[in-house]
Amino acid sequence: MTIEPPTYHLLHAQSKPNTIHPNAGLRRRETMIGLLFLSPWLLGFVLLKLLPIIYTLGYSFTNFSMMNPNGTAFIGLENYIRFVTDLTAWTKLFGSLGYFLTTVPLQLLVALGLAAMLSSHRVRLKPVWRLVIFVPSIIPAAAIYSVWLGFVNPSSGWLDRLILTPLGMPPLAQGNGGVPLLATVMALWSIGPGFLIMYGAMLGVPNDLYEAARIDGAGPLMRFLNITVPIISPAIFFSLVINLMGAFGGSMLLDRGYTFSEGSSISPMTGYINQIMFLQSDMGYASALAWVMFGVTMTITIILFRWAQRWVYFPEGNRNEIS
C-alpha cells in the first residue's frame, strides 16, 4: 500500500481548470520543476528538429542550390510538381515503403522468437548466444555491403560456389538479384538491441504468473500470448521504434557508418534524396522530397502509435495515453 503524497490529493481535488484553487500554486511549482528537467530536450527539439524542418519547408519552395546560393528565388510549388511527374522518385518512395513493410515485421518477429526461445531455462550457454545475436549489430555498413557482394556476386560469389553449383542449380542472375537478400541480412543483423531488450524484459516476468496459468491449464503458446506479451509490451514497442528508425533511413541506434551518398542508404528514398542533395546540389528539390518523405513517415508513425495504444501496457494503469 503506497501512501499518497500530499500533492496528489490536492491535484485530484481540482475539478475545473479555470477556477483558482487554493493549491494551484503548488501544482504550478510542480509543473515548472518538471519543465525545468525537460528543458534540455525541449531546447534540442526546437533547435535540432523543429526549426530545421520549418527551414526545409521554406527551401522546398525555392530553387536554392549550393552551387549558386545568391541566385535563390521563390518558385512556388514547382518542386512539388516536379516530384509528381518524377517517376524515379515514386519508384524510390515505393521501394522505401516495401522495404519498411518487409523488414520491420521480420525483425520484430525474429527477435521476439529468439528472445522467447533463449529465455527458456532449458537453454545452455545463454551468454554466448546473447553475444552472438548482438555482435552483428555493430558491424560497419561498408563491411556488410562487401560481405553481401561476396555472397551474391554471380559466378564468383560464395552462394554460387558453395551451394548452387554443387547442388547443380542455376547460378544467380546478373544484376540486382541479390537486393532482397541484402535487405534481409541487414535487417536480421540489426536485431541486437531489440532482442536484448525483449529478452531482458522476459526474464523480468514473475514466475508465479506462469505457475498460476499452468495450473489453470494454459499451454506454452497461451502463456506466451496472454502473459509474456502484455507484460513485455513496452519492450516490444521500443524494439518496434528502433526498427522503424532503421527502415525510415534515420539515424540508427547503433551507427553503422553510412555515408551520405547515393546507394549508401538502405532506404531507397533516402539514398535518392542524398543523391540530389550532394551530387546535384539541388537543395530546393531535395527539400521538397524530404518533406514528402517526412509526410509519409509521420503518417505511418501516427498510425502505428495509435495501434500501439491498444496493446502497449504501461504502469500507472492508464491505457489511454501513449505515455
Binding site: 527539439f45 539515424s251 551520405f260 533516402t270 542524398n274
Partner: peptide, 17 residues
C-alpha cells in the same frame, strides 16, 4: 508522444539547415 515521434524523423529533412 512528440519525443518518440522525433526519433522517427528522417535525417534528410533536417540535414540541409
Amino acid at each position: 508522444f512528440l519525443l518518440i515521434a522525433t526519433i522517427l524523423i528522417p535525417d534528410s529533412i533536417t540535414m540541409v539547415p
